[in-house]
Design a protein around this nucleic acid. Structure first.
Lengths: 145, 145
DNA sequence: CTCGATGCAAACTATTTGCAGGCAC
DNA sequence: GTGCCTGCAAATAGTTTGCATCGAG
């Protein structure tokens, strides 16, 4: 535990950036959560813990965390960008119900092969992928027509 | 050719919505393009053809076209949402270079099986998927370290 | 005719940015 | 001490919406 803070520290050190209490608190908050979160979720979550960190700092910190591989962008919902922590988690994809917005995560190992194939065929260095499947959950199917 | 207009007409008729010159022009413009476009691209494209259609109408029309299956959302770039026409095209996925933004499209038939599996396992009715792979193109690899 | 659609401009809202102090190093 | 960071508030920019008018059915 806490190795996300190590990664943060190294990431910052390597670029002569500062390890501030704000950045640490943001990472702590992110890894304390187990859901998809928006900037506002983070802001309010921190606030509830008496940490007054401005939205601006969160907006400025998130790109660093994306870049450091600690956090990933999931998708957009209601105009907001949703994120999730990725470090220490199996890579997974998202299946989303269009009616109720429910999100199910699932593993898809076959995509590694796709990546490898693309790298070979097109000469790309592939860093990652994002698969979002959309449909209707069983529950909404029975409700809807 | 022109069957996208047919689809539009049917879609609107089925819901007692009106087949307006604006909606027709928007669809024509979309299918005349062969790229990923933003609302602004559409607006300016129409304008160049002397069709003065307000952005508001475009914003109001796009959800209909998404819903009718004529258009798909591709991803966000520079804060704007990018779309593409999907009707009449093989389904494909996107490989995107993080450095230069270049986008390569590729087919991935294996994803059909993934959809089928999910539908079976989770009871979802699956409507579609979006796979975005990110990496670095050969060109940018040689430039960057 | 009637009501849904359009254009305009104002409203919203997520995100970005300039600036004056603050603090990690 | 120096320069990167922070918070604040103002600025941006994409998208949405209210309203008067227009026109498809």
């Amino acid at each position: 535990m806490g190795s996300e803070l190590e990664i943060l520290r190294e990431y910052l050190a390597r670029r002569n950036m500062r390890y501030t209490p704000e950045r640490e608190a943001i990472v702590r908050e992110i890894f304390a959560r187990h859901d998809h979160f928006s900037v506002d979720d983070l802001y309010l979550g921190l606030r509830k813990k008496r940490r007054r960190i401005s939205r601006a700092s969160i907006y400025r910190t998130l790109p660093l965390l994306l870049n450091a591989g600690l956090v990933g962008q999931v998708f957009q919902e209601g105009g907001q960008t949703l994120y999730e922590h990725t470090y220490g988690h199996e890579h997974h994809c998202h299946l989303r119900c269009q009616e109720c917005g429910q999100v199910v995560e699932f593993a898809e190992p076959a995509l590694m092969e796709v990546e490898a194939r693309l790298a070979k065929e097109l000469g790309y260095r592939v860093d990652g992928h994002k698969l979002e499947v959309s449909g209707t959950c069983p529950n909404c199917q029975s409700k809807g027509r």
